[in-house]
C-alpha cells in the first residue's frame, strides 16, 4: 500500500487520540488555570484498572465504562484533594508571587504523576502488559487489496468523533456547559451570577479525567501498558494544546490532529527516532510564530 495513505490513516487515528489528550489539558487549563502534568498518569492508572477488570473476566465494555468513570472520579479527587486546598492558600507568601501561582500547581501535578506511577508499579508489578482492543487490529482488506487502515483505527476515529460531538453539544447547548465556559472566561461575573465556580472547576477536572482516560484506553492496544507508556502522549498532547493556543477547545482538537499527521509523516518518511526532535521543533515553531495558537486571538493568551 502506498506510504502516503499509510501515514495519513495512522495520522488520523493517532491524531484523534492526541486531540482527546489536548482537549483534556485545555479543559483544566481554562477551567482551573492549571496545566495538569499528571493527566496521563491518571489515564495510565485507569487503564490499569480496566486491564485488571478484564483479567478478572469482566467484559471489555464494562471495563471500558468503569475506567471512564474512574477517570472522572480521579480527576475530581485531584481537584478536591490537592488543587483546591492549594489555591485557597491565599496567605502563603510563595503564592503571593505572581509566577509561583502557576508554578506551584505544576509541581503538585508532577508529584501526583510520580505517586500514580509508583502505585501502578506496586499494584501491577510494573511489567508491560498488553491491553485488548474491542475490534481486530489487523489491516482491513477490500477484495484483494490491503487497506492501510485497521478496524481498530476506524473504531478509534469513530469513538473520538462521537466524544467530540457530545462535548460540543454539552458546551454549546446545556446550562452546565455555559456555566463552564463562563467561569473559565470570567470567574467573578460567573460567581456574581450565583454559580458555584468551585463545583464547576471540579467538573472540568472530571471531564478532563474522562477524556484522558478514554485516550489511555484507545492508545494502549497499540503501545502496550506500563507505568510509563503514556508519558509521550502527555508531551504530544501539550504540544497540540499549545499549537491550538491553549485556551481554545476547538483549537486543541485541531492541534491534536495536526500533531497526529506530523508524527505519522515523520515516522513514515523519516525515522521514528526523529519524532521527539520533530515535536520539539514543532513546539518551538508554534510558540514563536503563533503564540496565540492557530485559532486564538492575540489577547486571549493568558501567560
Amino acid at each position: 500500500m502506498n506510504s502516503f495513505l499509510t501515514a495519513f490513516f495512522a495520522g488520523t487515528s493517532q491524531g484523534a487520540i492526541y486531540a482527546l489528550v489536548s482537549l483534556g489539558l485545555v479543559l483544566v487549563w481554562r477551567g482551573a488555570g492549571v496545566v495538569n502534568f499528571a493527566q496521563m498518569g491518571q489515564a495510565m492508572f485507569t487503564t490499569y484498572i480496566a486491564s485488571q477488570l478484564i483479567q478478572n473476566e469482566y467484559s471489555y465494555w464494562s471495563a471500558f465504562v468503569i475506567a471512564l468513570i474512574s477517570g472522572a472520579l480521579l480527576g475530581a479527587l485531584v481537584d478536591l484533594g490537592i488543587m483546591r486546598p492549594l489555591s485557597s492558600r491565599k496567605n502563603s507568601l510563595l503564592l503571593n508571587s505572581q509566577s509561583m501561582r502557576t508554578t506551584i500547581p505544576v509541581i503538585a501535578s508532577l508529584g501526583i504523576l510520580g505517586v500514580l506511577k509508583a502505585l501502578a508499579g506496586i499494584f501491577w508489578a510494573g511489567e508491560e502488559r498488553g491491553f485488548p482492543a474491542p475490534v481486530p487490529t489487523t489491516g482491513l482488506r477490500l477484495g484483494n487489496t490491503d487497506l492501510a487502515i485497521t478496524g481498530f483505527d476506524l473504531f478509534v476515529i469513530g469513538v473520538v468523533f462521537l466524544t467530540l460531538v457530545l462535548t460540543t453539544i454539552f458546551f454549546t447547548r446545556t446550562g452546565m456547559g455555559l456555566a463552564m465556559r463562563a467561569s473559565a472566561l470570567n470567574p467573578e461575573v460567573t460567581r456574581l451570577s450565583g454559580i458555584r465556580v468551585g463545583s464547576v472547576r471540579t467538573l472540568s477536572w472530571a471531564i478532563s479525567g474522562t477524556a484522558s482516560s478514554l485516550a489511555g484506553l484507545l492508545v494502549t492496544p497499540k503501545t502496550n501498558l506500563s507505568p510509563n507508556t503514556l508519558d509521550l502522549l502527555l508531551i504530544v498532547g501539550f504540544t497540540a494544546a499549545v499549537v491550538g493556543g491553549l485556551t481554545s477547545l476547538a483549537g486543541s482538537v485541531l492541534g491534536g490532529f495536526i500533531l497526529g499527521y506530523v508524527i505519522a509523516f515523520v515516522n513514515v518518511y523519516s525515522a521514528p527516532e526523529n519524532v521527539f526532535l520533530a515535536i520539539l521543533i514543532f513546539l518551538l515553531l508554534a510558540l514563536f510564530l503563533r503564540p496565540q495558537g492557530i485559532l486564538g486571538s492575540k489577547e486571549v493568551r493568558r501567560v
Binding site: 446550562g175 455555559l178 456555566a179 463562563a182 461575573v189 460567573t190 451570577s193 450565583g194 454559580i195
Partner: peptide
C-alpha cells in the same frame, strides 16, 4: 448567553 448566565442558578 450572558443573560442566560444570570438566571442559570434558578433554572
Amino acid at each position: 448567553e450572558n443573560i442566560e448566565l444570570g438566571g442559570l442558578f434558578r433554572k
